[in-house]
Amino acid sequence: MDTTANTAGLGWLHTSVGRKVVMAVTGIFLMSFLVVHLAGNLLLLRGDGGAAFNAYADFMSTNPLIRVLEVLLFVGFVVHIYQGLYFISKERRFRPKGYTLHRPQDNTTIFSRTMRISAIVILVFLLVHLRHFFVEHRILGASLTMYESCKLAFENPFYSAFYVLSMILLAFHLAHGFHSSFQTLGLIVNRRIDRVVRWAGTAFAFLVPLGFAVIPLYFLFQTLY
């Protein structure tokens, strides 16, 4: 860690514990964004030809409050990713000579062990996703409505497969990240709360990515039948 950091003021955010706190706070913020995002996306399933969804998309891209939050969200992503990269870059320092035989599978979950892989896949997904929807609509100004864009994308089996795969890895990421965030904020006070948060984390990690994944599958299956 940054051992020379001055821990006065906000300097404490540069210690190993402080950096974890940043990771957790941004993590929880991003998870709350996922919920909002999912709620909006589910409008795609209303079968109204995209009227509700388009209205929602329109609101999201014009409301000034949302625009401010959007900037915050962007910062949240960047900081979360930056901290992750920072941790990864330092990792080898703590154990310069590794073990010849190491069996973390015996004392950790697959979700915590795959945080890095899941993060990378989600990041790639995020970039593709932004290119496809955000850049296309908000910067280039696409001729299609948002609903049509989605429909088009999801009817492509390769895109949908990539989308679903990404959601599975998001589930992995959340399966560790949800509980971990609460732990890092010191909220896991006792075993009972621990059980509740673990249960909630599992539910969250399962349901939210499932909710997202259902949408491309819905469009894909519509083209098939």
Binding site: M1, D2, T3, T7, T15, S16, V17, R19, K20, F87, K90, E91, R93, F94, R95, P104, N107, T108, T109, S112, R113, M115, H176, H179, S180, Q183, T184
Partner: peptide, 17 residues
């Protein structure tokens, strides 16, 4: 915590190992 960092121990990532 400061000493822990200065000694060169890493950060916790809540894996529980």
């Amino acid at each position: 915590v400061m000493q822990m960092d200065m000694e060169g121990f890493g950060h916790c990532s809540n894996t529980g190992a």
